[in-house]
């Protein structure tokens, strides 16, 4: 568990933070979202001591981060950033193996781990010997994520890792990353200014503004009961209803019922936005749910208040 206790940072490079307290559970994908300059990156960088708070403390599993030498602490925490920061003079494989090499792993073990990570992030094994400049933006970002996860850290920090990518590539990477997170059970702290990305990825979201936490909760909580007008302004707007659909699963809104033979069906783990899209597409008010006998998803189900 990562615990911020009343931390403040007033001066120095980057954005100020004012009296923030937060708790991030182990295995959680926790998103810090907010406008630029809100202090979200500063909070993230306090976890691996790239920024030291003026007041308050950051604890990991009860232990103050200041009690661990900075470099030892950082080798145990993955770190991926928007501008990727791959070392331009090192091959992809060597970049990914940075932290394992620092930790003194054997060459065989590093090589095996690099191959495993490249497969996990759907990187072609042939690019292992390439230099970063020879890769596409999406590939570079995948390498950046692989590098952050190389030494199987318990915590991974990600500062807008998908920010510079085109929408299609970003969505692919978000899905891949969700899957990887689910598979590995790593604690991830993820910074973004994109509310859709936050809602899409986060188990829980902290909305940061002006160095304060305005609201902290699940995506549904932020959407259904924003704490104030600022949060409402950020989560709401023209697509508020669609966002609400996109954070809920078919499984959570299906009802008993029956449909005619030949009605199209949708996966129980798809989100309700996809269900609505399919209804509009097929001009039907009710769809069959895959793998759930006697259950259907209907337009009324979409409109019913979340359970």
């Amino acid at each position: 568990m990562i615990e911020f206790s009343n931390v403040s940072k007033r001066f120095g490079q980057g954005e100020a933070v004012d009296g923030v307290s937060l708790q991030i559970a182990s295995g959680e994908l926790f998103v810090l979202v907010g406008p630029s300059g809100s202090g979200k990156s500063t909070l993230l960088r306090m976890i691996n001591r790239l920024v030291e708070p003026d007041e308050g403390s950051v604890r990991i599993d009860g232990k103050d981060v200041r009690d661990t030498p900075a470099t030892d602490l950082r080798r145990g925490i993955g770190y991926a950033i928007q501008s990727v920061g791959l070392f331009p003079h090192w091959s992809v494989a060597r970049n990914i193996g940075t932290v394992p090499r620092l930790l003194g792993w054997s060459n065989d073990r590093i090589e095996a781990r690099v191959q495993e990570l490249m497969a996990m992030l759907e990187l072609d094994a042939g690019i292992a010997t390439r230099l970063p400049a020879e890769l596409s933006g999406g590939q570079q970002q995948r390498v950046g994520v692989a590098r952050a996860m190389a030494a199987t850290p318990a915590i991974v920090l990600m500062d807008e890792p998908f920010g510079a990518l085109d929408p299609v590539t970003r969505e692919k990477l978000q899905h891949a990353f969700r899957r990887i997170h689910a598979d590995t059970g790593t604690t991830v702290v993820f910074v973004t200014h994109d509310m859709d990305e936050a809602l899409q990825l986060g188990d829980r979201i902290a909305f940061i503004d002006g160095g304060h936490v305005r609201q902290c909760g699940t995506p549904l909580e932020l959407l259904l009961s924003p704490a104030d007008e600022v949060v409402r302004g950020f989560v709401g707007g023209a697509s508020a209803g669609l966002r609400l659909l996109s954070v809920r699963k078919v499984r959570d809104a299906m009802t008993p019922g029956s449909v005619a033979d030949g009605t199209p069906s949708i996966n129980a783990d798809a989100d309700l936005r996809q269900a609505l899209s399919m209804m509009v597409d097929s001009r039907l008010r009710t769809l069959r749910v895959d793998g759930a006998d006697g259950q259907v998803i209907s337009l009324d189900g979409l409109l019913a208040p979340p359970r």
Partner: peptide, 15 residues
């Protein structure tokens, strides 16, 4: 050296 590479280097625990 690109600033991002330096930030990443420090963030990953290079002395």
């Amino acid at each position: 050296a690109p600033p991002a590479a330096l930030d990443a280097a420090r963030g990953m625990g290079l002395q």
